[in-house]
Amino acid sequence: MMRRLPTRRLFAALAVAAIAISPGHAGNALRGRGEAVPIAGSNLTITPGRDWNSLGVSPGKMVEVWTLDGEDLNAVTFYAGIEAEMPLVREISKKRLPLPKFRRQTLLADIPELLEGTYRARRMIATFHVTGATPESFLGHDGIRFTFDYVEEDELPRRGEARATIIDGRLYMATFAGPRLYYYDRSLPDFHALVEAARLR
């Protein structure tokens, strides 16, 4: 059976536009199996059990996104030590689209709401449900594990799972999200393996 693409119709304009909107785009990087790598230059390191891709464009200074097939299909997002009074990701407009902040008084139990508020504001989505939450350690510290469902503008229902902890006043979190059809279940074990492979230097 044919497995290749006979027709390719991508216009050069797309490439030009994509480069134009992402100044400083460093390209996507391989995160090779068995190689320990720091996340966003922080003290959080991951030694992946399989090859992953780290996207060249990041939504925040302390954030790194890994994927196997593209962020719309499977996205692992690492938040590597978010400081107090900061949003999880970069604010596009502090006045028009303010994002919720990680506060000094934020508790582990508040983190699902922080992520929900961030998704709703940054991705401008109306449907987001936290479907479960339970205490579970992360990076060797007390933490929380929670799951969620959401629908973005593309009308494709997605599922997610997150693990988070607070260490020395900083938030460390890893989330995984993908379409509930096929992609979420297929790569969830790979996300769990990354969580197990996460360490603080």
Partner: peptide
């Protein structure tokens, strides 16, 4: 489109 057709943006694993 983003990660296979657009050569400058390909995913290393692909």
């Amino acid at each position: 489109v983003n990660y296979q057709f657009f050569k400058g943006n390909r995913l290393p694993t692909k």
